[in-house]
Design a protein around this nucleic acid. Structure first.
Length: 258
DNA sequence: ATGGTGGTTCGACCA
C-alpha cells in the first residue's frame, strides 16, 4: 500500500513543528505540500530529511511555493513550473517521479476578486493545466495530481453555497474549468469513495469557521485511470486543523495498492 | 456594509 497526502501548510517555516508531528504520526509515503512561502535554500530540507523524507521543492519568496516529500528516492523532477507559459514565474507546480508514480504538487490560483486580472489568471492557469493533463494522459502513466485547487467542485463541497456562489472558488466558470479537466479521465479520489456532502478541507481563520464547521472542500487528489485502478481508500484528516497554531487547511489522503 | 484572522515582513498584499 502506498499512501499519498496533500496539505496546504500556509508557510513551511511557521508550520514546521506541526508538519514534523504530522509526518511522524501519519507517515504518508508521499506528501504534497503547498504554500511553503520560502525560497528553495530556506526550505527545512534537513529537518524533513531527519524524519525520513526526500525533498523536491519549487519555491519563491513570500508567496506560493510547492514541495514533494517522499520516503522513496525522488528519481526525477519533471517540472518546476506549470508548462505552457514561460513568462509565468509563480511557484505553483512541481512534478516528480518517485516510487514508480508520477506526482504533482499544485497550488492553483485563488482568483479573487472575480472580475479582475487575478480571476483571468486563474482561468488561464486552469486552461494550461487542462493542456498539460492531456499530455500526461497520453503517456498512460500512473499519476496523482494533488493540491490546493482553490475549487469547490459542487455545492455539496460548500457549507453555505448561496453565500459563496459569487466567489472565485465556486463560480460557474471555475467549476466548468474543473469539470473540463476531470472529465478528461481523472478521478477525484475523495469524492469517488465518500459520497456524503459537507466534508471540508479548508476553514477560514476568520469568524470561528473551524469551530462552526463552516468550510469548503478545495484540496484534492486527482488520479489517472491507472492510479484509479489501484485506489483503495481516501479520507480527510481533520486533526491537524484543530492543533495549536494550525494551517487553515487540513490534509487529504488516498491509498493505492503497491 | 464592514470586518473579522493569519503569514510575510514592517506597509501592504495575499488568502
Amino acid at each position: 500500500m502506498i499512501r499519498i497526502a496533500v496539505w496546504n501548510v500556509n508557510s513551511i517555516r511557521a508550520r514546521l513543528p506541526l508538519v514534523l508531528k504530522w509526518l511522524a504520526e501519519s507517515r504518508p509515503d508521499i506528501a504534497l505540500l503547498q504554500e511553503t512561502k520560502c525560497e528553495d535554500a530556506a526550505f527545512p530540507t534537513l529537518e524533513v530529511g531527519d524524519v525520513g523524507y526526500n525533498v523536491a521543492v519549487a519555491g519563491q519568496k513570500t508567496y506560493n511555493g510547492v514541495a514533494v516529500l517522499s520516503k522513496r528516492p525522488i528519481d526525477e523532477v519533471a517540472a518546476h513550473r506549470l508548462p505552457g507559459d514561460e513568462t509565468d514565474q509563480q511557484a505553483r507546480y512541481i512534478e516528480a517521479l518517485t516510487g514508480g508514480i508520477r506526482v504533482a504538487s499544485i497550488y492553483l490560483p485563488n482568483g479573487n476578486p472575480v472580475g479582475t486580472e487575478k480571476y483571468d489568471y486563474k482561468l488561464a492557469w486552469m486552461t494550461r493545466l487542462h493542456h498539460h493533463v492531456k499530455t500526461l494522459l497520453a503517456t498512460e502513466d500512473t499519476f496523482v495530481l494533488g493540491g490546493d485547487y482553490n475549487v469547490a467542485p459542487e455545492d455539496a463541497d460548500v457549507h453555505d453555497p448561496r453565500a459563496w456562489e459569487a466567489d472565485a472558488l465556486c463560480r460557474p466558470e471555475t467549476r466548468a474549468a474543473w469539470r473540463r479537466i476531470v472529465c478528461l479521465g481523472l478521478t477525484d479520489a475523495y469524492r469517488a469513495l465518500n459520497p456524503e456532502p459537507g466534508r471540508y478541507s479548508w476553514w477560514d481563520y476568520r469568524g470561528s469557521a473551524w469551530s462552526r464547521d463552516q468550510g469548503l472542500r478545495i484540496d484534492h487528489l486527482l488520479l489517472s485511470p491507472q492510479a484509479t485502478d489501484r485506489l483503495t481508500a481516501a479520507g480527510i484528516d481533520r486533526n491537524p486543523r484543530g492543533w495549536e497554531k494550525p494551517s487553515d487547511h487540513t490534509p487529504v489522503w488516498c491509498e493505492l495498492t503497491e
